[in-house]
Amino acid sequence: MSKLWTTFLKDAKLSFNGLYFYIEIGLAFIFVAVMLFVVPENFESGQKINAFVNLDEPIKSQIEEQITSEDDSLLYDSRTALEDSLEKDRSAVGIEIKSNGSGEIIYDFVLQGYENDRIKSLLKSTVEGEFLSSIPGFESSVSYDVLEPDSQRLTDRANILPIYLTINVGLMGLFIIAAYIFLDKDEGVIKAYAVAPVKIWQYLAAKMLIMLLMGLITSIIPVLMLAGTDVNFLLLIVMVSSFNLFGSALGLFVSSFFDSMVKAMGGLYAAVMLMVLPSLSYFAPSFNPAWIKVFPSYPMMFAFRELLLKNGDTGYIWMQTVLFLILALLVFFAANLRFKKTLTV
């Protein structure tokens, strides 16, 4: 065990001195930046508010005038029309403004289901600031209705995270671990290692631990920055670890069949493409043939999604985590068997 640790520390030192580590971290930050600046989280300035003013004249016109002065707001003339409009545009929120018959105005928000408390309070203060001041003499109260109480929707940003996480795990495991092995082969250091009283699996496991470290860093940062602190990070760490170990074990196994990075490229590329394919079904749920579920990235993607959903299915997450851990062990075992024969040839 201490030899594994020694090897891991050496590999860590080498990767902090090398490029790949920083490329990975850099890519994670670029992803975060793109998400933050290009893909809007559904609620920020310029939020679309669809409204139905369910009041008698003259207050109705007064409020409607107020609302239409906002660029991004549309008026509907029934609750059903309002809800339909929200089904169509899932980045909008709705509001029905009505009276309770005893001089109180009720602001009833119709939400999509993915909005968090921060957004709710943001809406409330907007209403208080903009509408209430213009209609003096009315007491008010705010309430929320949710379109789909158990929403299967994520904000646009959070929705892309599962794909990023899955590809990150897949790419890291496949390409970078292979690159590390071939780097060692080219430098010849692998031969020196192989004539020391250490086991091949210790060499391979140290590389997997490096991948794990990188995988965790490049997964936690984007989740923290894009999905916030509501996520169950303990579960995220367990999931990423399991999937990442599987990914790098697969990378080891694929590279064991080749003797240079160039030759391994085709195989690795094919493996990555297969990892990416299920994202089709992720974005277009109607495209969901049975065969696509065979790809390991399919359950990975949907497990990440469950993690980000407010009431995600933790049973599913744990099942996939354990499953991939077992698979990782098996693939690692196979890679070790192969490398015993081919690592120094």
Binding site: T6, K10, K13, L14, G18, E187, G188, A192, A196, P197
Partner: peptide
């Protein structure tokens, strides 16, 4: 057993001393 190679193979990113110290730790 000790093995020296025709083509030198040391970790270029480690110092000479680090190379030897790392390798020492692999022995029992």
């Amino acid at each position: 057993i000790g093995v020296s190679f025709e083509q030198s193979n040391v970790y270029g990113k480690l110092t000479a001393r680090e190379n030897l110290n790392f390798y020492s730790k692999l022995f029992d």
